[in-house]
């Protein structure tokens, strides 16, 4: 098991997926992250999500498109067949658009709730669509952990990779809030990112992470001022310090929020 004497987990990244408005893959994101440049935060573009069959793509909810897009990118980069990978999908809010539509209908005419919208409302809708599209019969999960959704999902994925000695797909995403929910939820743009993790180092290893659970909160991340708007716009952007470190490919340590008063310390090993 890839565990150090201190109880840290060591996992190797084999693939990275990224989609944010106007920045549609990891190579584009890495350029901006290396330079500390601003990310676009607006626009109506939708992820291509070509891994979904065309009829599913047309009717799939926004989080499904987003999660499937980044997951497919990470698998392609890792050159791993998605069908073989256990997968963990993390999101702080789930499908904010469907929640708005469902709650609006329930408040006015509950008998008019759409059956499709309802079955798409489950937090594991992206995991469901993904496993169907890729014919993946392995374990799939959908998790959430408030501001720590990215870190908690990453930790669970790393645990899975280490204990079952299998490569694991991890995807994190959130979309923009709409309707009355937008008044309380701080999420104004879609963003998703994905990693393929393996406990074994191999020819596909792009970077190595050493994960340590910290029983205290993370200090505020020092990020370039140009990226502040991005961090404000989507909860999964709590992961930005990790991706910036990966883009720069230099050894460093970042700390991401995890639980209410805990954090995940991640050493990016050169």
């Amino acid at each position: 098991m890839a565990r150090t004497e201190q109880g840290d987990l060591i996992v190797h990244i084999e693939g990275i997926g990224w989609w944010s408005p106007g920045v549609v893959d990891w190579s584009a994101a890495a350029l901006l992250l290396r330079d500390g440049a601003a990310f676009p935060t607006g626009g109506n573009a939708k992820p291509a999500a070509t891994i979904l069959p065309p009829h599913e793509r047309r009717r799939a909810p926004a989080p499904v498109l987003l999660a499937c897009e980044v997951a497919a990118q990470a698998c392609a980069m890792a050159d791993r067949a998605a069908a073989a990978l256990p997968c963990v999908f993390a999101s702080m809010h789930g499908d904010l658009a469907i929640t708005d539509e469902l709650c609006t209908t329930l408040a006015t005419d509950p008998l008019e709730v759409s059956p499709t919208r309802f079955h798409n409302s489950v937090h594991n809708a992206p995991a469901g669509y993904w496993t169907i599209a890729t014919q993946c019969h392995a374990a799939s999960s959908a998790v959430s952990a408030w501001r720590g959704s990215f870190a908690a999902g990453l930790l669970e994925s790393a645990v899975l990779a280490c204990v079952d000695e299998t490569p694991v797909l991890f995807a994190a995403y959130d979309i923009a809030a709409q309707g009355a929910l937008a008044g309380v939820i701080q999420a104004t743009m879609p963003f998703g990112a994905a990693l393929v993790l393996n406990a074994k180092r191999g020819p596909r290893t792009l970077a190595t992470l050493r994960l340590h659970h910290e029983s205290h909160a993370a200090p505020a991340a020092a990020l370039p001022a140009a990226q502040a708007a991005f961090v404000e716009a989507t909860p999964i952007a709590h992961s930005l310090p990790l991706f910036a470190a990966l883009a720069r490919a230099n050894a460093c340590r970042v700390q991401l929020p995890n639980g209410a008063a805990t954090s995940l310390s991640i050493e990016v090993l050169a």
Partner: peptide, 12 residues
């Protein structure tokens, strides 16, 4: 007041 890993699984 737990300070270990804390996570919600929501798979219906």
């Amino acid at each position: 007041g737990t300070r270990g890993p804390c996570i919600t699984v929501a798979t219906a």
